[in-house]
């Protein structure tokens, strides 16, 4: 519902500009909160130091926007580079490996709302947002099988476990989404 409301306000402003009627939303940022169901307005000023439209612009032509938007967090830990492919298993390989591994522990690092949609039998939920190997209750001797929705978040968790001394780690390549396609056709996709 939210995009409907916001898109209609956008349409209204376009039409007002064309008709040159009313007070256009220039210099004002309208904030809409669907949960509180309120609108707020804050002032937006032209910044004299703006690199594009300010007094001494440094952006005088189009730039490399991919590079401009690729900002790392300064001071943040750079994740360890590992050979990710060595830990990836296709859904069928992942299932076969678990079936043959008596010490297998299956960890789902998605968030709770995703867990409620579907999950792999036998999995334990440890959301990445609060994932900490030290308090996970996992034993570095365990064989830990990890999955998420598409396989990226579980790789992040895998790297943290590796750093914490875990040795037997596997990641479900393509996540539960690909699992639903290739292993469990009854599982819903979202």
């Amino acid at each position: 519902m939210l995009p409907g409301v916001v898109g209609l306000i956008q349409a209204t402003e376009v039409i007002k500009l064309i008709l040159d009627e009313g007070a256009p939303l220039i210099g004002r940022l309208l904030l809409y909160d669907a949960m509180k169901m309120n609108f707020k307005e804050v002032r937006v000023r032209k910044d004299p130091e703006c690199v594009l439209c300010g007094d001494n612009p440094s952006v005088t032509e189009l730039i490399d926007y991919k590079a401009f938007c690729d900002i790392p967090i300064p001071g943040a830990e750079v994740p360890e580079k590992i050979d990710e492919a060595a830990y990836e298993l296709s859904p069928q390989e992942f299932k076969d490996a678990m079936d043959q591994d008596p010490s297998a522990v299956l960890i789902d690092v998605r968030e709770n709302y995703e867990w409620e949609i579907c999950k792999i039998d036998g999995a334990q939920l440890l959301p990445l947002s609060s994932f900490d190997p030290a308090t996970s209750g996992l034993d570095p001797e365990d064989s830990v099988y990890l999955y998420c929705y598409k396989g990226k978040r579980s790789m992040q968790a895998l790297k943290e476990l590796k750093k914490a001394g875990f040795k037997n780690l596997k990641n479900l390549s393509g996540g539960i989404d690909l699992w639903a396609e290739e292993v469990d056709s009854d599982m819903p996709q979202y």
Binding site: L2, L29, L31, K46, V51, C53
Partner: peptide
């Protein structure tokens, strides 16, 4: 116009008429 979860932001950038641009915001 842009949205994130249940919040939306809408404004007009019009530096040619003296208003701010996205980078000013």
């Amino acid at each position: 116009a842009s949205i994130f979860r249940f919040q939306g932001q809408i404004t007009i950038f019009s530096p040619e008429t003296g208003g701010p641009c996205y980078r000013c915001l």
